[in-house]
């Protein structure tokens, strides 16, 4: 195994982790502020990817596509919050799971009806095509490098928004005591719609960015949604910082597991056997990580102890 290959896999893991953070940040915010479990978050991710692919395909501009993804995802988020989600805040988690499961069915089949069952393709913008040369002779696809950088910038922006701005103060206050900030004159329902739209925009953005390296298809959101759940469980529900640390951890575990485990088993098994066992175990690695975290910290790495 060469060091260069290892570093490339490390970067892949980082890129995966950063995208997972964009998904899980919205989920964890929505849970932290509104106490809502939202299965339809994966559908918003899909909507972002489809909006980007459709607009970029029609106009030829990736940036316009990205803008469309943000707008479509935020609009879908706000619409869903105003019509459905709003009625669910006082309900138990079972109702929230079911209603958002129903939303997944509606969104998925609606998208299939609009765009058909065949995957769409979103092209990487010309400026980001091809490999980038990094120090120490590392060669890495420019677009994936851009994803890492943009993702980190968005993450930093989100931290700044939560920590420094007035909206951030209100969001944090909403997490701490909903009724109190309502009594202090903050329009709670407007804040909820805003947080929901913000989370949706982040998911849509992630969908559009990933859409250029994967195919854009119905059902693309749910695997990512479930990984985001794993991230949130590991990081601790409601904690943005936890979501960030856990995203990177999950991204690296998954990518490096797929890369290293077959090699590891190759040292004492024959090649095909090692590949089978290694791949099968690698597919379970992040869940084993989650189980391990749960045994030692049932509320996650950064979750409030109960």
């Amino acid at each position: 195994m060469s060091a260069l290959l290892f570093i490339e896999q490390l970067l892949n893991g980082l890129q995966f982790g950063v995208m997972l953070f964009l998904m899980s940040a919205g989920l964890t915010l929505i849970f932290g502020v509104m106490g809502l479990i939202n299965l339809a978050h994966g559908s918003i991710y899909m909507i972002g990817a489809f909006a980007a692919a459709a607009v970029a395909g029609a106009t030829g501009s990736f940036v316009l596509g990205l803008g469309a993804a943000l707008a479509a995802a935020a609009a879908a988020g706000a619409l869903v919050e105003l019509t459905v989600i709003r009625r669910l805040y006082d309900r138990d988690h079972l109702d929230q799971v079911l209603a958002t499961f129903a939303l997944i069915l509606i969104f998925s089949e609606g998208t299939r009806w609009l765009f058909g069952s065949f995957p769409l393709f979103l092209d990487v913008p010309d400026a980001l095509r091809g490999p980038a040369e990094l120090p120490f002779g590392i060669v890495y696809p420019r677009y994936r490098l851009a994803i890492i950088l943009i993702g980190l910038v968005v993450a930093a922006g989100l931290f700044a928004l939560i920590a420094k701005t007035r909206i951030g103060v209100r969001i944090r206050a909403g997490e701490a005591d909903r009724e109190m900030i309502g009594a202090l004159g903050v329009d709670i329902s407007k804040l909820y719609t805003l947080v929901f739209a913000l989370g949706a925009a982040l998911a849509g953005f992630a969908g559009a960015m990933v859409g250029a390296i994967q195919s854009v298809e119905v059902g693309m959101g749910e695997p990512v949604l479930i990984l985001a759940f794993v991230v949130i469980v590991i990081g601790g529900i409601g904690s943005i910082r936890g979501a960030f640390v856990a995203s990177i951890l999950v991204g690296l575990t998954d990518t490096l597991g797929r890369f290293l485990l077959p090699i590891l088993f190759g040292t004492f098994l024959d090649a095909s056997g090692a590949n089978i066992v290694g791949t099968a175990l690698a597919s379970m690695a992040i869940y084993i990580l989650m189980a391990a975290v749960l045994i030692f910290r049932p509320t996650g790495l950064f979750g409030a102890a109960t």
Partner: peptide, 22 residues
Amino acid sequence: GVYFIMITLAFGQMFFYFAISW
């Protein structure tokens, strides 16, 4: 609560991927 929902979902998914990759 929500942790339980997410964790059971994740374990279910673990079996799914195991069945696919075995």
